[in-house]
């Protein structure tokens, strides 16, 4: 009796470990299945559509508003110190290094990740995955791999769109509304931003986020218990785990890239 809570703790710990192991097994199997997307580019196109095209609107609009708010708030602070000219730099640096990759990944986890989990989970619940296996078609390669690579491909492009639209939004607010000098806006930005340090690192970040968010979404769907409650729980988990993983990884990656 006394040991019951301890046993429960141990059991859930083991469950988590086992799930972790299955997740990595699945990732390995998907990576080994890369050949599949090369052989059937059409499958990939459909998934880039699902993740990329369908998320573009929300990503673009969010980027625009984040850029505009950054410029508004940034101007408020910078103008106090007589550094309003650095507004462009502030907007661009925050967007390209952090907000672009991170917010895009969070949006994709919510918009496309949950949809992926529900789709795969439902395919499992209705025995479509088992049906594929019995047709001697590997569902990991045919269903999951194109989705993984679609997500990995779409994520950096979405993040770039987010940042670019955000910079333009910042320009619109900063230069258009708040009267910052246009030349200073761009030149300060260009002086301090570096292609390799900032843009490439941002792309690397969003590639990593693309892998992690899509992987979590696919695994949750593939590993869910095949019931309606199971699918709905898995969908929630995708968003929560995806967001936590993105934020945690962002900290690690930022420390690695910009910390030194």
């Amino acid at each position: 009796m006394l040991l019951d809570p301890l046993a429960r703790l141990g059991r859930s710990g083991l469950d988590v470990l086992a799930r972790f192991g299955r997740g990595h097994q699945l990732l390995l199997a998907m990576v080994l299945g890369v050949g599949e997307v090369l052989r059937r580019p059409r499958l990939l196109i459909a998934q880039v559509y699902n993740v990329g095209v369908l998320s573009m609107l929300i990503v673009g609009v969010s980027g625009l508003f984040v850029g505009m708010v950054l410029a508004l708030q940034g101007h408020y602070v910078l103008a106090r110190f007589g550094a309003a000219e650095s507004l462009g730099l502030m907007v661009a640096a925050s967007l390209v290094r952090e907000l672009g990759p991170v917010v895009t990944a969070l949006l994709v986890a919510g918009r496309a990740g949950s949809a992926l989990t529900a789709e795969i989970g439902l395919m499992k619940a209705t025995e479509q995955l088992a049906g594929l296996e019995l047709m001697a078609v590997d569902p990991v390669r045919r269903i999951l791999v194109p989705r993984l690579f679609g997500g990995v491909l779409a994520m950096p492009l979405l993040a770039a769109i987010f940042s670019a639209v955000g910079v333009l939004g910042g320009y619109f607010v900063g230069v258009g509304l708040l009267g910052v000098d246009a030349g200073a806006f761009w030149s300060q930005m260009q002086a301090a931003m570096d292609v390799r340090e900032d843009v490439v690192n941002g792309v690397i970040k969003s590639l990593v986020f693309g892998v992690v968010v899509t992987w979590i979404a696919l695994f949750q769907g593939y590993d869910c218990s095949p019931t309606s409650a199971g699918v709905s729980r898995a969908t929630t988990r995708t968003v929560v785990h995806g967001a936590l993983a993105v934020l945690g990884l962002d900290f690690v990656l930022t420390a690695l890239m910009f910390g030194g």
Binding site: T126, E127, Q128, A130, G131, L134, A136
Partner: peptide
């Protein structure tokens, strides 16, 4: 390879929706 020689009809049908 073995399953290519088998056909199975699922109780639920299991069609790709």
């Amino acid at each position: 390879r073995l399953r290519r020689r088998m056909g199975m009809l699922f109780q639920s049908g299991a069609l790709l929706t």
